[in-house]
């Protein structure tokens, strides 16, 4: 008899406990990723900063404020600790465009070396996990000029596994925000195939995240690719040109997905797009007659 009373009570308890919960809750799809530092005794390889899921506030609190508060809260995992030292506080935070303006107290200036770097990027990674934020701008004390910290500059782990396997940043369009975002994809490297071609094949497979779209228009065929004197010549089928002309908004995203991805290969300084092996004047209103270089401004946060 007891179990028939206790079981429903337990279910009700679990149901109510998940509503309006404050504090870390584990892996959740729509949550703030608060970046924590791994405790020294567990630092034996792997990564240093780990995200801990923090639920979005349901009571209308500004997510930025919530994220700032979460950064100072005690982690739930016993292997993790707060990145911000006790005497370093976020005084205030607000959004400006797609940046979060973070105001820190003077104690921040006492930080040295990598400790400062870790605080910078923990804040940047945490804030950029919010949908509308790409980078943070840090102000300390009464400074009027801030430092821009973008999370894509953080390398959280060694991406080179072996001579035959490494991870590369592949960029894919995020049409909703009009930017491109990178994902790490593992590439198999061997002597029979160039890095560029391996990368392109992987790029053509498409993104893993459902929030991103393929880097190139459908039915685009890679005809050839080779690098000489720092310029990577890539020849695509005519379908690419036609698609760009049909969809000028996407043309820019496709082009820079291609360019930024290929620029990640050592020795590639710029990318020349060819259509059927020939230079073309423009595609989708963009001049493609000259080589393109890596474009930082079009890159959005990969951590949201």
């Amino acid at each position: 008899m007891k179990k028939y009373v206790l079981l429903p009570l337990l279910c009700l308890l679990l149901l109510f406990s998940s509503c309006g919960k404050k504090g870390p809750s584990g892996d959740e799809a729509d949550s703030i990723k608060v970046y924590r530092l791994l405790r020294p005794e567990f630092q034996s390889g792997g990564e240093l900063l780990y995200p801990e899921a923090y639920p979005f506030p349901e009571d209308g609190t500004d997510p930025l404020q919530c994220a700032a508060y979460a950064l100072k809260s005690i982690p739930s995992g016993e292997r993790l600790m707060c990145v911000l030292p006790e005497n370093v506080d976020i005084l205030s935070i607000r959004q400006s465009g797609r940046n979060a303006l973070v105001y820190l107290n003077d104690s921040y200036n006492n930080l040295e070396g990598m400790d400062k770097t870790l605080v910078d990027y923990a804040i940047a990674l945490t804030m950029s996990s919010l949908p509308e934020i790409d980078c943070v701008c840090l102000y300390v004390g009464n400074e009027t000029a801030g430092r821009i910290i973008c999370p894509d500059k953080a390398v959280l782990r060694n991406t080179v596994h072996s001579e035959e396997e490494a991870e590369a940043r592949l960029y894919f369009p995020r049409p909703y925000y009009g930017d491109i975002v990178f994902e790490y994809h593992s590439l198999s490297l061997n002597e029979d195939i160039s890095f560029e071609r391996s990368l392109m094949y992987k790029l053509l497979e498409g993104p893993e995240s459902g929030r991103l779209v393929p880097a190139l228009p459908e039915d685009t065929v890679l005809l050839s690719i080779y690098t000489q004197d720092g310029v990577c010549d890539i020849s695509l089928s005519e379908n690419f040109l036609l698609s760009c002309n049909e969809n000028p908004q996407m043309a820019r995203l496709w082009i820079y997905s291609l360019v930024n991805s290929l620029s990640g290969i050592s020795g590639v300084n710029s990318v020349q797009i060819l259509i059927e092996g020939k230079k073309s004047a423009e595609a989708g209103g963009i001049d493609i007659s000259a080589p393109f270089e890596y474009n930082e401004k079009i890159v959005g946060s990969a951590f949201s």
């Binding site: 240093l48 990598m114 894509d152 500059k153 953080a154 390398v155 782990r157 991870e167 990640g264 050592s266």
Partner: peptide, 18 residues
């Protein structure tokens, strides 16, 4: 690194911190 060389970025590795 031949692929995705990270000059200018920050290596937040536990080994480097130590």
């Amino acid at each position: 690194a031949q692929l995705d060389p990270s000059v200018g970025r920050y290596a937040l590795f536990p080994e480097i911190r130590r």
